[in-house]
């Protein structure tokens, strides 16, 4: 393809360990190493840990957080923040369940309705944040309350049981790959991440995600419609939360309106994966490894009999450790 005499010059300065450690790829490699160490430690500590079945359990456990994290990674690279994710997840599950039981729209209709709810919440977030300049933190917390209240109101605070076998299969079936039984939710997560990885890496939209996160004013002056991109990213984050909510409802066999919000787990996974809150840097690969790392830690601790209360403490400490290292490495 490139027949030109002038070749694009690659890496003129040669490989530099320090600049690699500071780069976003460096973060992913660091997390992978941490993941391998954690896996090694748990494998030594528990005979049940290093096992295909247990691996698949971890995969299913992380899939909900993983799906939502993947979508909101794009938003956070662009410098945005979405705290309405947990509320949208619950709303999507309830909406899907209610559409299934109270209308004849079927599984497709249920999923579409749930996604529409996520897109709508994201659109409202994006409009207020992009057009009126409202702080994303405030706006999305406000929407969290609005959505949570509406969900409880419409469902009369009652869980909506789902019996449709096709819908339940979204969360409970397995895909058999030789001797491997892959839980469907894990597959959905990997699929979402693959698509979003492609978007970020190869498309114009992906380039603008990084550009807007780097300097929105420069993008505006370069003629890019920053407002539209911002709104689209909040909508994507809402859609991701809704898809996660659909899978969660299928796993639980019900749309539960009062589930504890998981937005902080989602956001901390994204940050652990190397996305800066200031925007401009980050990779889907980082989010994937971060979600895996947290999932493996929780699973390993469960197998070792550590109570879930201390697992929360560990999850918090891992995040603090990660951002501390991130600060320190800037001084390299």
């Amino acid at each position: 393809m490139t027949q030109s005499v002038t070749q694009p010059d690659r890496n003129a300065g040669g490989f530099n360990l320090f600049s690699f450690a500071r780069s976003q790829e460096g973060v992913v490699v660091f997390l992978l190493v941490a993941l391998m160490i954690v896996v090694a430690v748990f494998s030594a500590a528990s005979p049940y840990f290093f096992d295909v079945r247990n691996g698949m359990n971890i995969g299913r456990a992380i899939s909900i957080i993983g799906i939502a994290s993947a979508f909101t990674t794009l938003l956070m690279i662009a410098g945005g923040l979405d705290l309405s994710i947990g509320a949208v997840m619950n709303a999507a599950g309830v909406v899907a369940a209610m559409v299934l039981t109270q209308t004849g729209l079927g599984v497709g209709g249920a999923i579409l309705a749930a996604v529409a709810v996520g897109a709508l919440v994201g659109w409202v977030n994006g409009m207020f944040i992009a057009k009126l300049g409202i702080n994303p933190l405030i706006m999305t917390i406000a929407m969290q309350f609005v959505v949570r209240g509406l969900t409880l109101g419409f469902s009369a605070s009652a869980s909506k049981v789902i019996v449709d076998p096709t819908f339940l299969a979204i969360g409970q079936s397995y895909f058999h790959l030789g001797p491997l039984a892959i839980p469907a939710p894990l597959l959905w997560m990997l699929l979402a991440m693959l698509v979003l990885w492609f978007v970020l890496r190869f498309t114009l939209f992906g380039k603008y995600v990084y550009a807007v996160g780097g300097k929105a004013s420069a993008c505006r002056r370069a003629g890019i419609n920053v407002n539209v991109i911002t709104i689209q990213l909040y909508m994507l984050s809402g859609i991701g939360a809704a898809l996660a909510g659909v899978v969660l409802a299928a796993i639980q066999g019900a749309g539960i309106p009062y589930g504890a919000g998981s937005e902080l787990s989602v956001i901390s996974a994204v940050i652990l994966g190397g996305v800066s809150l200031a925007g401009g840097v980050g990779l889907i690969e980082g989010t994937l490894v971060a979600v895996l790392l947290v999932g493996v830690l929780k699973n390993g601790m469960t197998l070792m009999g550590i109570s879930s209360v201390f697992q929360m403490v560990a999850e918090g400490l891992v995040l603090v450790g990660a951002v501390t290292l991130d600060r320190l490495k800037r001084r390299l």
Binding site: Y210, G214, S217, R221, G280
Partner: peptide
């Protein structure tokens, strides 16, 4: 226009 701050995305 080239602005005083150059309007570049430094992360790119």
């Amino acid at each position: 226009t080239i602005y005083q701050d150059l309007a570049l995305c430094e992360n790119l």
